[in-house]
Nucleic acid binder design. Structure first.
Length: 567
RNA sequence: CGGGAUGUAGCGCAGUUUGGUAGCGCGUCUGGUUCGGGACCAGAAGGCCGCAGGUUCAAAUCCUGUCAUCCCGACCA
């Protein structure tokens, strides 16, 4: 490709709307342009990168036995009513009506559609297992689209769905996908980690996330410094302290007047009691029942763990009026002593002695509260967020935290959808059974952004070779010089003939401009043709991730490039 | 959905306080000189000042509404 023909409008300045590196660089380097909030046009360079990513994904899906299909983006409401997700997904779905006022949604995902498809055309265990996938645009009307391609409202996803006759089959399919995913991220040359994850609203029991490591990642991951345990903080298991500090004596319960003191920090200052010696009482509505959840003053409650533990359809924070009417005090003055509702306390809290909390009376707190003597918890459970330094749940190591971008997520769905949608098959005994399903997603467009997020410097992007839009860029310092021009073209032709993807910067621009653009768009290998080295019959070769040039004999250029690209 | 901010040329911004014929830098086009890390000189094009109302002799500027974009939050009391 000749640069003079390529549409890649680069920008000198950073568009003001872009906050994170990947967004800024993809805009500046002419890869994407915004159409509206969370919706982007992919320009030629991005399209090339996306194609490379999807090619790798496709190859690995096919290798694992997947078959590619294409499904509609427009999906009828009835399908979503059947699975119960029309209201569950709610505002997250783009909805539209046709001229007859029939209702549709733009597919945020395709479980409903594919389950229905497989149900209507697979009737026997003989047709199973079946692995089908699609690579398409999906739509989610995010509360707040942000960070460019990271959290868009329209995005490209690969989703594979597995259908098996039983849970053993599902385990096998799941393992296949797990391996395929590892191969994919290794081939993409991204620094990633597999973590245990919560399966969230999609349902199912086992689940792993594939995280590209990056400071700006939206997810926090904990991992063990000794073994290979790694989990999303949402999921990470917290253990009770094995050797709790020597049990102090119970001091007597004291009620203290604390006018206007509401937060944990207020009490630290007012009563001189450290956060770790206080407890935090959070009130939730589990469907129609008010409950209390308690963690140590310096900890964060993990709502997902709480929800998973106590069940119920919906769990949300109670509003202050409700709390006041039942507990007698507003937020900031709550505590378990004398509280009438079910109280769930964190494992860690169970080991505390003589702590402080609200007295269920505005402007009063208790100090020297003790479990058993002063109140009785309904259950002692793991409901806090893991933090750095916690003990590993699998070994003696301690946990560390790191941030990552979720680029892949695999779930064991089981029969959640096949039962709701009555998708069954006949087994070898002629018994009708629900299909056992798994679902395996990769955010393709997000992976592109994550690659940039992880690989850039002050001059621009550093694409990993396997997904770079071009592998080599040739920069003749002065295109008007016939000797440089001829040599550039002959190297270009030779490399192209060998199947290398080459961008020839044949623009009549100053050398500096061409170097800047080459760095910005992030081509891994640069060949510079200029008078300095031409005298010696050499060209300069520079790897994007290295500082220095190396001189290469003109006769050896092709071989040198092939060695690097094919390594 | 709550809070905050911003909409002025393709991009980045000033001008708004104190109303008086719309500016700067980059980019773009023409000509020339240049030519190894975003050149220089000369010239030029390009704006319904987000949109709609209102106040005024006069509105980018004041008022009302509306739309859009971005940031923070939307559980940690």
């Amino acid at each position: 490709m000749k640069a003079s023909q390529l549409f890649y409008p680069t920008l000198r300045e950073v568009p003001s709307e872009a906050e994170i590196v990947s967004h800024q660089l993809l805009l500046r380097a002419g890869f994407i342009r915004k159409t509206t909030a969370g919706v982007y046009t992919y320009l030629p360079l991005a399209q090339r990168v996306l194609k490379k990513i999807t090619d790798i994904v496709r190859e690995e899906m096919n290798r694992a036995g997947g078959q590619e299909i294409m499904m509609p983006i427009i999906q009828p409401r009835e399908l979503w009513e059947k699975s119960g997700r029309w209201s569950l997904y709610g505002e997250e779905m783009f909805k539209l009506n046709d001229r007859h006022q029939r209702e549709f949604a733009l597919g945020p995902t395709h479980e409903e559609l594919i389950t229905t498809l497989v149900d209507s055309d697979v009737h026997s265990y003989k047709g199973l297992p079946l692995l089908l996938y699609q690579i398409q645009n999906k739509y989610r009307d995010e509360i707040r689209p942000r960070f460019g391609l990271m959290r868009g409202r329209e995005f490209i996803m690969k989703d594979l769905y597995s259908f098996d006759i039983d849970y053993e089959g599902l385990d096998e399919s799941y393992q296949k996908m797990h391996h395929a995913y590892q191969r994919i991220y290794e081939r993409l040359e991204l620094d990633y980690r597999v973590v245990q994850a919560d399966s969230g609203a999609i349902g199912g029991n086992e689940s792993h996330e594939f995280m590209v490591l990056a400071e700006t990642g939206e997810s926090e991951i904990v991992y063990c410094s000794l073994c290979d345990y790694a989990a999303n903080v949402e999921k990470a298991v917290c253990l009770a302290e094995e050797n709790p500090p020597a049990r102090k004596e119970y001091k007597s319960l004291t009620k203290v007047h604390t006018p206007g003191q509401k937060t944990i920090k207020d009490i630290v200052g007012f009563l001189d009691i450290p956060e770790q010696q206080q407890i935090k009482t959070l009130m939730y509505m589990k469907d129609d029942e008010l409950i209390a959840a308690i963690v140590r003053g310096d900890r964060d409650l993990n709502e997902i763990k709480l929800k998973n533990l106590i069940g119920g359809n919906q769990l949300f924070m109670a509003d202050e009026a409700t709390v006041k009417s039942i507990c007698g005090a507003g937020f900031g003055s709550l505590g378990p002593v004398g509280m009438k509702v079910k109280i769930y306390i964190d494992l860690e809290v169970a080991q505390m002695r003589n702590f402080a909390c609200g007295a269920n009376e505005d402007d009063y707190h208790y100090t020297n509260v003790n479990i058993g003597r002063d109140f009785a918890p309904f259950a002692v459970v793991d409901i806090r967020n893991a933090v750095e330094g916690d003990r590993c749940p699998c070994c003696e190591g301690s946990l560390k935290t790191i941030r990552g971008i979720e680029v892949g997520h695999i779930f064991k769905l089981g029969t959640r959808y096949s039962e709701a949608l009555e998708a069954t098959f006949l087994d070898s005994h002629g018994q009708e059974k629900p299909l056992v399903m798994g679902c395996y997603g990769i955010g393709i467009s997000r992976t592109m952004a994550a690659a940039v997020e992880q690989n850039s410097d002050e001059n621009g992007i550093l694409w990993p070779l396997p997904i770079a839009p071009f592998q080599v860029i040739i920069v003749p310092v002065n295109i008007k010089n016939q000797e440089q021009k001829d040599l550039a073209e002959s190297i270009y032709n030779e490399l192209t003939a060998k199947g290398i993807e080459v961008l020839l910067d044949d623009r009549d621009e100053r050398a500096g401009v061409k170097f800047k653009d080459a760095d910005l768009i992030g081509i891994p290998l640069r060949i510079t043709i200029g008078p300095k080295s031409l005298q010696e019959n050499k060209i300069e070769m520079k790897k994007r991730w290295e500082k220095e040039n190396t001189l290469v004999d003109i006769s050896a250029v092709t071989k040198t490039v092939l060695d690097i690209v094919l390594e």
